Computed example of a mutant assay.
Amino acid sequence: MRYLFFIIKRSLKRCTALTKSQTLLNLFKVFQRILKAYATKLFARLPRGGTGIVAAATGMDGQIRISERDERVICYIVNSAEYCHKTSGDLAESVSKIIDSQLADGVDMSEVQDEFSAVITKALVTLVLGLETKFDNEMAGMTRVPWGSLESVGDQSEYVNGINMILTSSIPVLGSLLSPIYFQFFLDKLASSLGPRFYANIFKCKHISETGAQQMLLDTQAVKTILLDIPSLGRQTSNAASYTKFVSREMSKAEALLKVILSPVDSVADTYRALLPEGTPMEFQRILELKGLKKADQQTILDDFNKHGPGTTQPTIAPSVVPAAPPAPPSSVIPNSASAGFITSREDVLTRAAALGRGAATTGFKRFLALTEAAKDRKDGPFRKLFNT
Rank of each mutant, 00 (worst) to 15 (best):
D270N: 10
A44I: 05
P326M: 07
T271Q: 10
K122V: 05
G175R: 04
P180K: 06
K134M: 09
K97L: 09
L12P: 05
K379I: 11
L12A: 06
R358C: 09
Y199C: 02
A374N: 14
V125D: 11
N137F: 10
I74N: 00
F5G: 01
A256S: 13
A269C: 04
Q299P: 00
L190E: 00
R384Y: 04
L187G: 00
N161G: 11
A361C: 09
Y3S: 13
Q236L: 01
C15E: 15
E283R: 06
T362V: 03
L167I: 11
L293T: 04
R367A: 12
F31Y: 15
Y159F: 14
T237Y: 05
Q156G: 07
E283A: 14
S267D: 08
E82L: 13
N306W: 06
V73L: 14
M139V: 04
L369F: 11
I202Y: 05
Q113F: 03
F183A: 02
S101E: 14
G141V: 01
L178Y: 03
A354N: 14
R14G: 05
R235K: 15
F246G: 07
E289C: 04
A370E: 15
A328F: 11
V119G: 02
T313L: 10
L275N: 07
V95H: 01
I166H: 07
K224W: 04
I77L: 03
D304H: 15
L275H: 06
G309H: 01
N137G: 07
E132S: 13
L217W: 11
P330R: 02
L371M: 15
P329R: 02
D304M: 10
K245Q: 10
A353V: 02
K295R: 12
T225Q: 14
L228M: 08
G50P: 03
G50N: 01
A55W: 00
L178M: 05
E151D: 10
Q298A: 04
N161P: 00
T19N: 08
A222W: 02
E347C: 05
Y243T: 05
S248N: 12
K134V: 01
P323I: 07
T271N: 11
D105Y: 12
W147H: 03
K9A: 07
L218T: 13
D155V: 05
H308R: 10
D304Q: 13
R69P: 00
A274P: 05
I66W: 09
K385F: 09
P47T: 00
R14H: 12
L178V: 02
Q314T: 13
A55R: 00
S179I: 03
T168Y: 12
E283V: 09
R235D: 11
S117N: 12
D219L: 06
L24H: 03
L129R: 14
A123Y: 01
L24T: 00
L288C: 03
V78D: 03
P196E: 00
Q102H: 15
P146A: 05
R45A: 09
P327M: 10
L257C: 02
P180A: 08
V107F: 08
K295E: 10
Y159S: 02
D229Y: 13
Q314C: 08
N336G: 14
S192W: 07
T362A: 11
T40D: 15
K9H: 07
F387R: 06
K204I: 01
M60E: 14
T143D: 04
L356A: 10
L190Y: 09
Y199Q: 06
A361Y: 08
V112E: 06
K291F: 04
F284E: 05
